[in-house]
């Protein structure tokens, strides 16, 4: 996994709530057996018409907006557990997703791939949207070590929470499968002493 460092970037605003993983990557595009290439179909049905021509009014087709930070309405990533959603967002060039609320499985999938989900308050989310509406190329600075996100133009800053273990995985690029594999003795000991051995 790539190490996460401090990031300053303009943002892509998507002020819609309850964006589910079927919107992020529709099921019919889940047939690839590798992790690459899903970015092409990110938000497929919002981004393209039935005849595959781009929908001009969708934010990813609007050159006014660009950047490595996707900012979306609350309950982002609900629905299906497909990790392809995190892969698609990352493959399209995003390193951070900001929302006022994330669905559990999506959040875990994002963290497992080095895509940083940042949960901010409703007020801070609104402030980001307001700033970007005023000035499309406004940038945010994300500092993972300090756990802060700043709207550069106004200096407004908010702290965010992240599980300390996950934080160290992101900062150091650790692989948690290697970590658990290093505990094999404990796992085998657990198996010896199971409460109910039939399982």
């Amino acid at each position: 996994m790539k190490k996460f460092e401090t990031l300053s970037s303009s943002v892509v605003p998507l002020p819609i709530e309850n964006i589910d993983t079927d919107q992020i990557i529709p099921a019919r595009f889940l047939k690839a057996t590798t992790r690459e290439g899903f970015g092409e179909n990110l938000f497929r049905d919002w981004r393209y018409n039935g005849d595959n021509t781009p929908k001009a009014d969708f934010v990813l087709n609007d050159s006014t907006y660009s950047g490595k930070v996707l900012v979306a309405g609350k309950n982002f990533g609900c629905g299906s557990s497909r990790e392809h959603a995190a892969w698609a967002i990352q493959d399209a060039g995003f390193a951070v997703v900001i929302s006022s609320f994330f669905a559990d499985i999506f959040k875990g999938n994002a963290l497992n791939n080095g895509l940083l989900p940042i949960q901010v308050s409703d007020e801070f989310l609104a402030a980001i949207f307001t700033q970007v509406a005023k000035e499309a190329k406004s940038s945010l600075t994300v500092n993972l070590e300090e756990q802060t996100v700043t709207i550069d133009a106004t200096g407004a800053k908010e702290s965010f929470e992240i599980n300390p273990y996950k934080k160290s995985c992101l900062i150091n690029g650790y692989d948690d499968i290697d970590f658990v594999r290093s505990q094999t003795d404990l796992i085998e000991e657990f198996e010896e002493n199971k409460v109910f051995k039939f399982y």
Binding site: S81, E83, N112, I177
Partner: peptide, 14 residues
């Protein structure tokens, strides 16, 4: 679970 976790369970049963 997501696919990274599927791999974790494959590799460790945990």
């Amino acid at each position: 679970i997501g696919t990274s976790q599927v791999e974790q369970v494959f590799a460790t049963q945990c």
